[in-house]
């Protein structure tokens, strides 16, 4: 039988993978944004599972809001990304190091 623990562990693995994705990715900024999306997916998974197992609907409402907000967030993120690309002709993570020290 599939219990709550299965879903929760799955979500924790997904969370860690996406975190690692952000940390080790040094190529494409856009992949970083995708990893953030994946992180939110992990969170959602957690919420949905707990919500359904304990019959508390507010967890799913939370997921609903996370979905809406994440969509809006990626719009802004991509807008900034596009601007940066126009400015520098690159979106290499490694080239974004003008500010440091």
């Amino acid at each position: 039988m599939i219990g709550l623990a299965h879903y929760l562990v799955l979500s924790s693995m997904l969370f860690v993978i996406s975190f690692i994705g952000i940390v080790i990715n040094r190529r494409h900024l856009i992949v970083m944004l995708m990893c953030v999306e994946m992180m939110l997916l992990a969170v959602n998974m957690h919420f949905v599972a707990v919500s359904q197992y304990f019959h508390d609907i507010s967890g799913q409402i939370f997921v609903f809001f996370i979905l809406a907000v994440a969509a809006a967030e990626s719009a802004i993120g991509l807008a900034i990304l596009v601007l940066l690309y126009r400015c520098r002709q690159t979106i290499d993570v490694e080239s974004i190091d003008q500010l440091k020290g």
Partner: peptide, 12 residues
Amino acid sequence: SGLLLLSAGGVV
């Protein structure tokens, strides 16, 4: 879930 984790790895 296996597929999910694999494709997550694929994203990275």
